Amino acid sequence: MNAIQEVNPPCPRCESQAAALMHQGIDNGERVWSIWHCTRCAFTWRDSEPPASIDLRKRAAWSQLKGVDLTQLRQVILPSDTPR
């Protein structure tokens, strides 16, 4: 298992510092994992996932969004505040 983050990590997909702590797994009073959500690109991850999924140095290049204008990406699911 990876080391548990003590501070907000950079997003593994867009590398922004916009990660928000969403939930923590607690076992015997000790945090064993955390779920983070990037408010910039909407990527969500658990800090106990394999490095190939969450380590910026090991993550596949095709899955990165650093420097991408997210407003130009197609939306598969419209935001809940979008008028219908």
Rank of each mutant, 00 (worst) to 15 (best):
Q72D: 08
L65S: 07
Q17I: 03
D81F: 06
F43T: 06
L21N: 09
Q17R: 07
I35V: 14
P12Y: 00
W36A: 00
T44Q: 10
R31F: 07
S16F: 03
C41G: 10
R57L: 03
S16H: 03
D69F: 11
I77R: 02
L70A: 10
W36R: 00
L78V: 10
E15S: 10
E15P: 04
R57I: 00
L73V: 12
N8I: 05
A61S: 08
A20F: 07
V68M: 04
M22D: 01
E49I: 06
C41R: 03
I35E: 03
L70M: 09
A42G: 12
Q24I: 03
T39N: 15
W45Y: 05
L73P: 12
T82G: 08
A61E: 07
A19W: 00
P9H: 03
S48A: 01
R40G: 09
H23W: 09
G29Y: 03
R46C: 08
L21M: 10
I35Y: 00
P12H: 02
N2G: 05
D47L: 01
N8G: 15
D55F: 12
R59K: 09
E49N: 12
Q5C: 15
W62P: 06
G67H: 08
R46M: 02
K66I: 10
D27Y: 05
C41K: 05
S34Y: 02
S53T: 08
P51N: 06
W36D: 01
N8E: 13
W45E: 00
V68I: 11
Q72F: 04
P50A: 08
F43I: 04
T71P: 06
K66D: 15
C14V: 08
R46G: 02
L56H: 08
Q17A: 11
M1N: 10
L21E: 10
P9I: 06
L56A: 14
P12Q: 01
I26E: 13
D55S: 15
Q75F: 03
N28Q: 14
Q64S: 11
K58W: 01
C14D: 06
E6C: 12
Q17S: 13
I77K: 00
L78G: 12
R59W: 00
G29S: 04
P79F: 03
H23I: 10
